[in-house]
Simulated assay, not measured.
Amino acid sequence: MHINFPLLLVIAVAVTGLLALLDFIWFAPRRRRAMAAYEAGVEVTDAGTLERLNKEPLLVEYGKSFFPVLAVVLILRSFLVEPFQIPSGSMKPTLEIGDFILVNKFSYGIRLPVLETKIIPVGDPQRGDVMVFRYPNDPRINYIKRVVGLPGDVVRYADKQLFVNGTPVERELLRTVGDDEVPAGHPLQALATVDIYLEELGEASHEARYKRLSQTPAAHEWTVPDGHYFMIGDNRDNSNDSRYWSAPDMPRELWGMVPDNYIVGKAFAIWMHWPEPKLSNLPSFARAGLID
C-alpha cells in the first residue's frame, strides 16, 4: 500500500487552515461578544468566567496550532527541499542503501503539489545530474538514477561501455574490489569482483560500478524522445533503469524514458546514513556531503 503523503499534507493544510479561518471570521467574534455582554452585565468580573467564555473549541485550537507548522512543511517540501531515503543499491557507489538525501525541488521548475504541473520554468535536467523521478510504470513510487540522455540524444550500451551520441563516455579504472552483493557462501564469492570507474558525464565526475562476472547484455541503442530523459543507475549491472522494460504492450522506445512531468527534483546532498532505523543501530553522519 502506497500512501500519497503530498495529498494527505495538502488536505491537512486545507482542513487546519479552514478551522483557523472559521475562528477568525465566526468563533472569535462570538467569543468577544459574549465576553463584552458578560462584562456589561456585572459589576465585578470573574477571571474564570472570562477564561471560559474566551476558550476556543478544541478542534479550532488544534487547527490553529497545526496550521502554520503544516503550511511551512508543505511549502518547503513542495517548492524547496524534500528528504528521501535510498531503498536499494542501484546507485552504488554514489549512494548506498540507507542514505538519507536532500532533493532540490526547484532546480527543474516550480511545480504544484499533488498535480505536479510545472508553473514556473527554472531549468532543465543536465547530463550527469542525479535525479529523483516518479517510476513510469507506477507513479506512486519514487526512483533515483543518473541522467544520461537528454531529449534528442542517442544512447548506446554495449560491452559494458556507455555511448552518448556516438561518443564513448570517458572513464578511468580506479580500483577493483570484492562484490559485496554476492551472498555469503556462494561458490563464486571469492571470484566475484567489481571494477570501479571514474566516469565523466556532462559536468559531473562520478564513480560507476561494473561486475566482472555478470552477463553482458546485448548491445542496444535508444533515441530519447522530446520531453523525456534516459536514466541509468551507477551500479550498472544491478539497476532497473531506462535500459530495461517489463510492459510488452508499451512501445519499446518509450518504456523507462522519464517524461518531464514525472520529475521530482535534483538530488544534491547526503545528510545521514541509517540503513536500519532503530535504537540499537544509531545513524551515522560520516557519509554526509554533496552528491557528485
Rank of each mutant, 00 (worst) to 15 (best):
G41R: 04
I110M: 08
G89Y: 03
R77P: 00
P57I: 01
A158Q: 01
W271K: 12
E276A: 15
D249K: 08
N104W: 05
I3H: 07
R209H: 11
E199K: 02
I25V: 15
P121Y: 07
L7W: 05
M35P: 00
P93M: 04
Y229G: 06
I232T: 01
R30Q: 15
N137Y: 14
L102P: 02
I141P: 03
I120M: 08
M35C: 02
V60W: 05
E276D: 13
L174P: 00
R52Q: 04
R32C: 00
M257Y: 06
P275E: 08
V42C: 08
M272E: 05
A267T: 10
S65D: 04
Y62W: 14
L279C: 05
I86L: 01
I232M: 15
M257I: 06
R127I: 04
I119G: 03
D129G: 08
L7F: 07
G98Y: 10
Q189Y: 09
V132Q: 06
A36E: 11
V130L: 02
V10T: 05
D153L: 05
G152T: 10
F268G: 05
D159M: 10
N165Q: 12
D241M: 05
L59K: 10
F24P: 01
F285D: 08
A288K: 13
K55A: 12
T49E: 13
T193W: 01
D195S: 05
Y210K: 06
R127Q: 10
N54R: 09
F84P: 03
T223A: 11
N104C: 10
T49D: 03
T117P: 02
L50N: 02
L188E: 14
I232W: 05
I120H: 06
D46P: 00
D180K: 14
E116R: 10
L282P: 02
V44G: 01
Y62C: 09
W271D: 13
P187E: 07
V224F: 05
Y229K: 07
P275Y: 11
H2Y: 13
D129P: 07
W271I: 12
